[in-house]
Design a protein around this nucleic acid. Structure first.
Lengths: 139, 139
DNA sequence: TTTGCTGCAAATCCTTTGCAGAGGT
DNA sequence: ACCTCTGCAAAGGATTTGCAGCAAA
């Protein structure tokens, strides 16, 4: 019942996966494109998008769909939470995978099938905090 | 320190707010546009976008930024969770505002200022479930 | 050899923006 | 009268898609 029954491990797909596993920065499609381009200068952005989609459907990576802005991708497909910086929209791993095993089934709207939930934290990253401080001192 | 110090309650802004408060469907900007157009046929989509932005900044409505897809708007600005249908992307209210007063401060990455968190549920809405059942029976 | 994949470029979708005139306050 | 807001239309950014040739299996 897979969408892509006969996947091929092309050089492009391989490199995208490798580069994504190297970092913990949760890059956007465009950032992945820039990373991969250093090794495969002729790769196209369209190919990057297609492969990120395929790799996330196969479970090798995870597509993050943070509140707002653009999608980001995580080379670590295991279950964990994220923190999004409200200033720069970058994403960091949250060092906990809280088991909010909330017993919500009965509380949800009738006949709504609950599949899961997602807990996202937001805040200000160290980098953006610094910027604020610098700006404040300047006045 | 408001972004919009001298707001005016124009007819367009008024109607957008009224229509949004009538429903609990969390419409997208385009859906709001269709709703409002019945009363103000000459309103433009740009005006709808601008007012949704302004109204959410003033706290009269809430901008939802669900994982994936387009933004949606909630006429009820009080704190509550949502359920998103993974098939049609529509959003319903979750009848609980879980107080996950998780004591996470110490667990988060050092020097990351945590502002808050967001809990989103996802599942399949009644409407899409029905569709699946109908399709299954057809075979 | 088969057929999934690629690069390219155009298209699409959602949202934002510049502008000159209209309309709240 | 002031100055924010509007309608219009064009621009913008992110992502998807059609196509003809390429390359995994």
């Amino acid at each position: 019942m897979q969408k892509h029954p006969n996947l091929r491990m092309t050089r492009q797909r391989q490199v995208i996966l490798e580069e994504l596993r190297k970092v913990n920065t949760h890059p956007s499609a465009d950032e992945v494109y820039e990373m991969v381009r250093k090794r495969l200068p002729r790769i196209s952005l369209g190919t990057v998008y297609r492969n990120l989609e395929i790799l996330s459907e196969s479970g090798d990576i995870k597509k993050l769909e943070p509140g707002c802005s653009l999608k980001r991708f995580d080379g670590n497909p295991s279950e964990h939470c994220h923190i999004r910086c409200v200033r720069c929209d970058r994403i960091a791993d949250a060092p906990l995978a809280p088991d909010i095993e909330i017993d919500v089934a009965g509380l949800m709207p009738a006949d709504y099938k609950i599949i899961g939930h997602r807990l996202e934290f937001f805040g200000v990253c160290p980098n953006c905090s610094d910027k604020t401080n610098r700006d404040a001192n300047r006045r």
